[in-house]
Design a protein around this nucleic acid. Structure first.
Length: 105
DNA sequence: AGTCGCCACGAAG
DNA sequence: CTTCGTGGCGACT
């Protein structure tokens, strides 16, 4: 059973439309919290995967999340593929946030 | 309940 | 590059 905080994270992440991405920072600030890490932790557990498109959440510099070892069962390659399928192109492993960033309007 | 360690980050040095 | 700040959660005590 996720906590309320996690629920908020999932709820926001879920709202990211196809062809768009967001950052841990944006989500955290939207939740009124200053910790991006807390968001990352919530996504790491991600009990709502793949309902919650955690692959659309990237770092502030447009890079995909780090994936240290195991995760929710997805790999960077799989996520990259999903993103490209949604129309998101990457340059040397980085995403152009200027084009794809979604600030939860 | 208190403490400690962990975490897919970010900013600063 | 490294180190610290930061917020929250899980595990252990």
């Amino acid at each position: 059973m996720p906590t309320e905080f996690e629920m908020r994270v999932y709820e926001l992440t879920r709202r990211i439309p196809e062809g768009k991405v967001s950052t841990y920072k944006a989500i955290a600030e939207k939740l009124g919290c200053r910790s991006y890490r807390a968001v990352g932790q919530a996504l790491r557990k991600n009990p709502f995967a793949p309902d919650v498109p955690c692959h659309r959440v990237v770092g502030a510099d447009g890079k995909l999340c780090g994936f240290k070892g195991k995760s929710t069962g997805f790999t960077l390659q799989e996520k990259r593929k999903m993103l490209e399928r949604e129309g998101i192109r990457m340059e040397e492993g980085s995403i152009s946030l200027e084009r794809y960033f979604y600030a939860f309007l």
